[in-house]
């Protein structure tokens, strides 16, 4: 079985490299070992989304039973998205679970993830805090997601207001990422975030 997996990955690797998406710099895969069990994937944040301009790194682990079981994929780059855990990077996507089909490929997975970035499904959330903000205060969600893209994925949009608030918490001795999570979770209200951090 492992043989089929390696054979498939080898083939798919070529497929991705030759594909037109690579030419447009939208997706990329990189081998991390000789046995084809671990790969690094990259997807570009889709245009007209808060993720635009960012590059998101993915960890891809290929199980021995691939392609009869789906690859295990997780975001390495921190991201603010209802279907992706802001803590672990775990992804909630049907094709990575029960809707996987053996005929799918790494390319289809990466493209589906890109599509997920453009069209979140807040009713099937992985991160409940993010999903709640997405549904109840979408404007704030856009700001937060764009800010995270800027900080973690190299996106171009700097948000001075967010940075200022984080710096104020950092001055109180809070670690930067921790401060960002608290502020993001409380719609960037400094007071409530502080309260949560010190309670």
């Amino acid at each position: 079985m492992a043989n089929i997996a390696a054979q498939r990955i080898k083939r798919e690797f070529k497929e991705v490299i030759k594909s037109e998406e690579v030419a447009k710099c939208a997706i990329r895969v990189e081998l991390l070992n000789d046995t084809f069990t671990e790969l690094k994937g990259e997807i570009a944040g889709p245009p007209d989304t808060p993720y635009e301009g960012g590059t998101f790194v993915l960890e891809i682990k290929v199980p021995e039973t691939y392609p009869f079981n789906p690859p295990k994929v997780r975001f390495v780059t921190k991201i603010w998205h209802p279907n992706i855990s802001s803590v672990t990077g775990a992804i909630c996507l049907d094709i990575l679970k029960d809707q996987w089909a053996a005929a799918m490929t790494l390319r289809t997975v990466l493209l589906s993830l890109q599509a997920l970035l453009s069209a979140a499904e807040p009713d099937d959330p992985q991160d409940a805090v993010v999903a709640k903000q997405y549904k109840e205060n979408n404007e704030m969600f856009q700001i937060t997601a764009r800010h995270w893209t800027n900080v973690y994925a190299g996106g171009p949009n700097i948000n001075k207001d967010c940075d200022d608030k984080i710096r104020r918490l950092a001055d109180m001795g809070i670690e930067e990422h921790q401060a960002r999570v608290a502020l993001s979770s409380y719609d960037w209200e400094l007071e409530r975030a502080t309260e949560q951090l010190f309670s």
């Binding site: 079985m1 089929i4 039973t65 009869f68 079981n69 089909a101 053996a102 005929a103 799918m104």
Partner: peptide, 21 residues
């Protein structure tokens, strides 16, 4: 192999085609 993997996961009547969607 598809059937073996599925049956070992406890799936029987719900095994579907290997094509996407």
């Amino acid at each position: 192999t598809h059937f073996e993997v599925q049956i070992n996961q406890g799936i029987s009547t719900g095994i579907s085609c290997m094509a996407r969607d």
